[in-house]
Nucleic acid binder design. Structure first.
Lengths: 219, 219
DNA sequence: TTCGTTGGTCAACGCTTGTTGGCAAAGGTA
DNA sequence: TACCTTTGCCAACAAGCGTTGACCAACGAA
């Protein structure tokens, strides 16, 4: 009778039923939570700060979302909005995808927040795995030559996309953060394109033991 | 007279002078700190836990490293051990570098820790910027065609390397975490190779408005 | 020996955290 | 009207945090 009916985030993408008087408050909490999680990461985003931003009492957060993790789960429902690639010439999918993700990352800071939380919090990491598997996976399966390879190719794509987001938007490496959109797209598009559509490379490229010459010390 | 002589981490890579009786304790603290920061990130790695791991009192940590941030700074002196590429045929530098970074990331978890902290903590991010600028930068300048482009190329390389480390070692995306070393190298080496040595791509690849067809909803 | 320095423990401080329960006002329904 | 549910605030809790200062034991030089 206690843990019931407390957390009632609508699981359906289109809720629209049973409007409550507190809907605006709930939305305010969620918005503030997204902002704080994005800016500060999971641990430093305190419930008190989120409540302050939302203009309500911290105890309301508990009432509507159960606990901090419940709030995080509710606040991190993310839609990558992967575009349909049916109409795109297959040799352009790399550029289209890179452009899309740059747009997406610049549009709101929820994605940056997802990254911040995913790195330090196991629940956040699980969330990211789900999101990328469910949203990136199908698209990759649709454009890559062998569907059996789709998961691996998706992981490669994710690695480059996330890596760039990390360098540009989170760590703010000066060259990565200041490079122009167009230049970035021109560099990254062929990478994504290859991960998606190229044949599997042979694995013989690896030179035998050229790593760490050992004797050379200083330049 | 108080804030002096408390933090005395030797700034030189080879300390070796003035051995103190407490050196083993200092080393134990540092080792425990590295492990905790790597496993838990900055906020959740508590001084108390680190002290417990090191088998001493929390106040010792304060005495030897001033405060938590000082401890972090001392614990995060990272050497990427970038190999000398002078003897490597320039068309193999991509494979050599990818191999090296995989080795490096698997050898110890300090790099994973650096990533974890860099994402949530500004001091950690600054640290990563320094490390990559100082250690990756010169190497890139040595192998890329136009030295003026070196910083941007280094950022691109860092984005792919960090992205893979993120997906494989931190977020543990199933395909990225389970892919074989050799396959990973075969996929990533050409990317790094191109970022380092290829000519600048033209920026006309970008199709005009193919993003988000808007009318298509469901598959 | 004596004395100053160093290595280390202990107990506590002020503060912030997530979380809880009580209580008052507002709204809806009968 | 009366009653019950919802919405919200307030005050407090137990626990954990980084940090501090007092105090004791061991050492090294005088």
């Amino acid at each position: 009778m206690k843990e019931d009916a407390v957390v009632d985030t609508p699981p359906t993408p289109a809720p629209a039923r049973a409007p409550r008087r507190s809907d605006v408050t709930r939305a305010a909490i969620l918005a503030a939570a997204r902002e704080r999680f994005a800016a500060d990461g999971y641990e430093r985003a305190t419930i008190r700060a989120i409540a302050r931003d939302a203009g309500i009492d911290p105890s309301m957060v508990m009432r509507y979302y159960g606990n901090k993790e419940g709030l995080f789960v509710a606040a991190s429902e993310i839609d990558l909005r992967i575009p349909r690639l049916g109409a795109v010439p297959s040799r352009h999918v790399g550029a289209v995808l890179v452009t899309h993700f740059l747009d997406r990352w610049e549009a709101d800071d929820v994605l940056t927040g997802m990254l911040r939380v995913g790195v330090t919090n196991e629940a956040g990491a699980e969330r990211m795995r789900e999101i990328f598997k469910a949203q990136l996976g199908p698209m990759v399966a649709g454009v890559c030559p062998d569907p059996a390879e789709a998961p691996r190719r998706a992981a490669l794509v994710a690695s480059q996309i996330l890596g760039m987001a990390l360098a540009r938007y989170v760590l703010r490496f000066p060259p990565a953060a200041t490079m122009s959109r167009d230049e970035l797209i021109a560099w990254l598009a062929p990478t994504i394109q290859r991960y998606l559509t190229a044949e599997r490379p042979e694995q013989s490229e690896r030179p035998d033991q050229p790593d760490q010459p050992e004797e050379l010390e200083e330049s």
